[in-house]
Design a protein around this nucleic acid. Structure first.
Lengths: 224, 224, 224, 224
DNA sequence: AATGAATGAGATTTCATTCAT
DNA sequence: GATGAATGAAATCTCATTCAT
């Protein structure tokens, strides 16, 4: 019932590298869970991919579900703290901040196996309520909050005019979720050649939103 | 040991029309697959929810996977033919058409258990390539095509100016997918009270996009 | 538990033809049991081949096992009585009688689907002790007895000299069983062209045995 | 609930040599398949008889059918190579060789659980064509070939005169098959006390055949 | 700490048998 | 009598988990 995944009990996430086992297992599990889904991934496979025996896996994670939790926690860990700091220290206009955030997100998350976690959580949420709660608390709500802060910054600085903040936040996030899922949708993706540039997609979306949110649309966009 | 729902007040358990069985099973399967995912749903549960025994299910669907296929096909069947006709006979402006389509989609699909199919397919795509192909052919590509036709209509009638159609189509669809998934995300959804109106969300999104696509930004938009 | 197969309760086996159902079912069952074995034959198949529904089959035979019993009984019924009479009225030498019996057996049994019953019984004997007892009493023991009578006839008439009767009987029967089984051995039979003549095989065998049994072998074989 | 055979007196259930498992399972499967037939034997039974759990069986044999194949192969493995060599190095007359082979066969096969395989194959041939092919190639055809070689040896050395070799081979084999089957015919065997000596049966049969095949019946055999 | 053989609960699927019509 | 939809016990096979070494 209770997990054994408190790897970070004594030290930082760098200390853990000393005994690389858990890390390799988490990596393997992440890849396989994302690739095949939780139910369709056998623990033997995870162990094999990590180069250890099945028994060893259970030395570190008492349960397959426990392994999933650890994977999710690992991928998530401390991401938002970091981003929060970056946001606070950003100097430019809010428009620029928003664009910047999107591009950074794409490089650090969207274009990363970590994005598969979003899909994984979406698929497994019903089956693991406890884990869902964790993910909501640690990812979804902070994510919403982060975007909310950015938008409020724009409003407070007189740059943006956003009447219904609740919708605005989701309008910003929707295309990000879209990309996260689409990149891991396997056989569903129509074989787009390579003329689809995700960053461009995000840019176009942001620009469309900003179009309607600019406080003084007359004196156009930023700079001059 | 214990028998099924005792509807035997007036008659036997044969009273229910036999032809209805497959439908009832599909309905039960749809609900459970959407609620718990394919792997986590046991066929006994589906049968029980449909008020029949496990064996009966296999009378109509030779395999659990077969049942999934049938569910997907059932929900999809002929949806796009209908919509194509509506689109062709629409008289108003393309802006109006786009708004209309979104609202109609929400009422006929998004706000319906059928929307859960999108999520289901997203989750199970890897495991059932054949089914994925079907869904892509029958839903995703026609969906893209439909939106593409609407946008091209606007361009051809001189109402819209859309330079990069490939992105435009996905910009339109992203929030719809977002809603479909979000409504079935279970424990991931932060318990929004009732102040979130999905139709409003879709409207805001469409307006933002149209803002940038209107052919005669003469008066408004940025610069001059 | 108890069987319902006493078709011959009131009348002869000809009366039964009036309602042909049971007969058609028995015929179908014989063919399928012989072709695929008891366990691998589904009752649906039997019913289908007989042109009736599964339910109907159970109207006549309370159990699949019961059906098997009826098939065996049907094929066996009264065969030995008939043969016993033929034997008693045979006029020629015992050598001729033996040859005659073999040829007749081949035409009436060996070359008939009924021969498949031997194989069937051999295969299913362990699983149905009661049926085995029946078959032993009704077929094997009478068969041994019949051959025994023939051989004893030869001894008594001074035609044959057979020291160990118990072995002699089985020596006569072995090639008959061999043929019965071989003809129904499916994929085991090496695809002999058509240069194997079962009657010749039986003849050669009988002659070999007679060779050693003739009381006055000097005055060679028959005719002259 | 209840655990397996409590051999835990001295040690654990791991004490048994792990390599022995497949062998023990094959032994158990052979016994049960021969005793009850393939279809009527449940894999749990096999496992139980081998002193392991159901799951363990599937660790070594991926399928029940696979287990059957392995049993057949195991029993067959390399038997004919050995015999071929013996035959080549035999020094005596062909008569003696034939008698010798029969007796050896009885001791090494006929009077062994391995003889049950013949019956098993006969019964299951229809259901497992691939396995039938194997058995035909590995047992039936080599067996025929072996007997053929013996008989041809006699002919070539001027000891025997055999006009129709195809029948001759089968005449030799028929009583062997007869015994193989009869010994495993369960309830079909009339409870012969112990006055039936299989070796004697085989001898009598061989002598009868040789009677007719001897090249120089001039002096010996019947009459004088 | 690491292994991997062993386990057994649980899931899907089959099919003889029942029974309302 | 005949039907065929419905049943549910039973069988195979999977795989997370355990544990002696």
């Amino acid at each position: 019932m209770d997990s054994t995944t408190s790897i970070s009990a004594t030290g930082s996430r760098f200390e853990r590298r000393k005994q690389a086992r858990p890390g390799e297992l988490l990596e393997a599990a992440l890849a396989l869970f994302v690739e095949k889904g939780f139910a369709a991934t056998r623990v033997d496979e995870v162990a094999a991919r990590a180069g250890v025996s099945k028994g060893t896996l259970f030395l570190y994670f008492s349960t397959k579900e426990d392994l999933l939790k650890a994977v999710v926690r690992e991928v998530i860990a401390g991401r938002f703290a970091e981003w929060g700091r970056e946001l606070d220290s950003f100097e430019g206009s809010t428009e620029e901040l928003l664009r910047y955030c999107m591009q950074v997100w794409w490089r650090r998350v969207g274009d990363t196996p970590a994005a598969g976690i979003s899909k994984l959580m979406l698929c497994e949420a019903q089956n693991f309520p406890e884990l869902s709660d964790f993910y909501r608390r640690e990812v979804i709500e902070p994510g919403n909050e982060l975007v909310g802060r950015i938008l409020r910054r724009g409003v407070e600085r007189g740059e943006l005019r956003i009447p219904e903040m609740q919708y605005a936040v989701k309008l910003v996030l929707a295309p990000m979720l879209f990309l996260s899922l689409w990149e891991h949708a396997g056989g569903l993706r129509t074989p787009q050649p390579n003329d689809f540039d995700q960053q461009r997609f995000l840019s176009l979306h942001v620009e469309a939103l900003l179009h309607g949110w600019r406080a003084t649309p007359s004196v156009p966009s930023p700079a001059a």
